[in-house]
Amino acid sequence: MSLPKPMMRGLLAKRLRFHLPVAFALSLLTAVAFKYGVTEPRKQAYADFYKQYDSVKEFNYMREAGVFESVRPSGE
């Protein structure tokens, strides 16, 4: 009793017919999950931060702390 020969002709095309749509669907699902799981919350966090951000107040705070070498604190 011998084993039957494996079918080699058309094997790649047969496997791709199944794996290509599965790979495409998984990549699409991953992209959508990344968009709504990472980028949208990040954009919302930036929007929330800049709603209340006062750049002039932050600049004055850093100037008083001596962060900038070219700008003197207002007390001098």
Results as ranks from 00 to 15, higher is better:
9 R>D: 04
58 E>H: 11
72 R>T: 06
32 V>R: 02
2 S>K: 05
63 R>C: 04
26 L>M: 12
12 L>K: 07
24 F>M: 11
50 Y>I: 15
22 V>E: 03
27 S>F: 09
72 R>Y: 07
42 R>W: 06
75 G>R: 13
2 S>C: 00
63 R>W: 01
69 E>Q: 15
52 Q>M: 11
63 R>I: 08
70 S>V: 06
3 L>T: 05
57 K>R: 14
54 D>L: 14
26 L>E: 11
43 K>Q: 12
64 E>V: 09
32 V>N: 02
34 F>G: 06
49 F>Q: 06
45 A>P: 06
38 V>T: 09
74 S>M: 13
46 Y>I: 15
47 A>V: 02
28 L>R: 08
20 L>G: 01
2 S>H: 00
60 N>H: 04
19 H>K: 04
15 R>V: 08
1 M>D: 06
25 A>F: 01
66 G>M: 11
40 E>Y: 05
46 Y>C: 14
25 A>Y: 00
13 A>I: 05
12 L>C: 04
74 S>C: 09
17 R>T: 14
25 A>G: 02
71 V>I: 09
51 K>Y: 09
16 L>P: 02
74 S>F: 13
24 F>C: 06
76 E>T: 12
76 E>N: 12
29 L>E: 06
69 E>K: 15
47 A>N: 00
31 A>M: 11
31 A>Y: 08
35 K>S: 07
43 K>M: 12
70 S>Y: 00
12 L>A: 04
39 T>G: 10
2 S>N: 05
52 Q>S: 13
35 K>N: 08
13 A>K: 07
69 E>M: 14
48 D>Q: 11
43 K>S: 11
30 T>G: 10
56 V>R: 08
73 P>V: 07
45 A>L: 13
36 Y>A: 05
10 G>R: 00
61 Y>F: 15
55 S>F: 14
25 A>V: 02
10 G>M: 05
52 Q>A: 14
43 K>I: 05
55 S>G: 13
